[in-house]
Design a protein around this nucleic acid. Sequence first.
DNA 1: TTAGTTGCAAAGGCTTTGCACGCGC
DNA 2: GCGCGTGCAAAGCCTTTGCAACTAA
Lengths: 157, 157
Amino acid sequence: MTSSHGPVTGTDPHEQLRRAGLRVTAPRLAVLDVVAERQHAETDEIATAVRERLGSVSTQAVYGVLQALTDAGLLRRVSTGSRSASRYEVHHHDNHHHLLCRMCGRLEDVACVVGEAPCLEPSDDHGFTIEAVDVLFRGVCPSCRERAAAAEHRAGS
Amino acid sequence: MTSSHGPVTGTDPHEQLRRAGLRVTAPRLAVLDVVAERQHAETDEIATAVRERLGSVSTQAVYGVLQALTDAGLLRRVSTGSRSASRYEVHHHDNHHHLLCRMCGRLEDVACVVGEAPCLEPSDDHGFTIEAVDVLFRGVCPSCRERAAAAEHRAGS
DNA sequence: TTAGTTGCAAAGGCTTTGCACGCGC
DNA sequence: GCGCGTGCAAAGCCTTTGCAACTAA
């Protein structure tokens, strides 16, 4: 483990929390670690993984941690629809977007464009102060497309 | 009202339903009418407006109608986050996007760009078959910005 | 010490489901 | 008449809230 006075790497979880003005606690370090390891995990999945490392952490505590870290800008919340659970990823501030499979729920990162971000400028902002943009491409992933094609063929095309 | 054998305008609700293979019922016509009139209405708001016209329609029936019309491509569902209620608009197939005020929830239409749609092509589609794109600009509308500025000034800048 | 965090339990809000009745076609 | 739609009630799911106990700083 890194000691408390190790060099500031900028990606050290301990340091990230302190810089955000948040206290360093085991659940928070665990959540940061889990999300970094398993990108796009859902709350429930994160809670399970955290419990595997720390023993017992309540689901509500995980919700609290996720909200605190998201508010602090350390994590980014990805919504895939009003009905489904939120997913989280580490916030890289790289304006990347997402690709969602409507059949299996698989979520992939997409760089909308390299370097610049053209879609971040609406043609008419109605006077709004724009702070963020969420872009979600909906479709079907290769695996599901194959599976669907096979099922259709089996039914007699 | 238009008679059952009037000219096919393409926007006649009665005709739209039949073309989609759906039965023409009073609740469906009312929902189509309400959504066309009040763009971006939430389910609850739509249900209330429909009840004002037809007398009594259950909320669940409205959910059913909205789902059927959305599946049929007549309506478009706009998600503004996992926690908030869905909003609906008539589906114009014009690939327009949305602007959401995080303070008051106001939602505005935005034409991402005129004519073409550059953001509809991700740099790397991971083999996905892309069917739709949701773009949501998050920010603060003019009214809320002014209100927030006034409150801050009152607190002693 | 002291204020930010976690634990636990419960409620809250939007949405879906199941089955019987009714109506469009 | 047949089958899709609607009515009604209830449950389901993710998430938030309230308050006491704890611990990082």
